[in-house]
Amino acid sequence: MKRITVLIAAAGLACNLLGELSVAEIVERANQASYYAGDDGSADVTMTITDKGGSVRTREFRVLRMNTGQGTQKFYVYFKKPADLYKQVYLVWKEVKEGKDDSRWMWLPALNLKRSIAPGDKRISFVGSDFVYEDVSGRSLKEDKHELVETTDEQYVLKNTPVNPESVEFASYTVWIDKQTMLPRKAEYYDKSGKLLRTVEAVKVETIQGFPTVIESVAKDLNSGSTTVNTYSAIKYNIGLNERIFTERFLRRPPREAVR
């Protein structure tokens, strides 16, 4: 058994050296690099939403994330701005098994109320921005058929077609993934007629504690003319979060890691 593992690892390494990753490996590694860096992490996010007319709305929140095994994750999002969202918490227990929905809650401090959010469309806007829920917590790799359409010196270019096209607003999307960091740098979403609907771009990347990390990303909705810029700061990995933070106790009493 051990020998087989070694063999597979060696084969994987060889493929990597030759630059011949399989499509499945590329999407898996890109997924790991984008959403699973470290055992856990925290970041401050400033979201600036500018609509077609130029009016600006901002959201500020801290995200705590923890990998909880077999692809599952927990997220704790503590809002600081705008004032009407102040101290609200969005809690997610992400599932990856087929047929299993994520559990999501919103904590409303003025009512002292933990409200369950019905599982549903992950393609809807996250807090009114041009990012959708799936951009924040990741889209299941099983949801799309992946196809390597181009390999350049720096990037893999993948075309992704949804297995269940009725469930999403796009007909396909193309992703450019950096070979070196395995981070997706750009995604373009197209409708059935091939018209560009939406773009998401990682415009700034830095290496933090050894993990290549997106520190600025931009989402554009070409139909509405709205743009959202996310900037990430105070990024930390492997901070030793306790899993109990992601429970009702710490909705009622936000932990130091979330507020300070």
């Binding site: 369950s116 019905a118 599982p119 549903g120 469309d121 393609r123 809807i124």
Partner: peptide
């Protein structure tokens, strides 16, 4: 029982 009926409609 609560669920989403359509996009942004629960």
């Amino acid at each position: 029982y609560q669920r989403e009926l359509a996009k942004n409609l629960t």
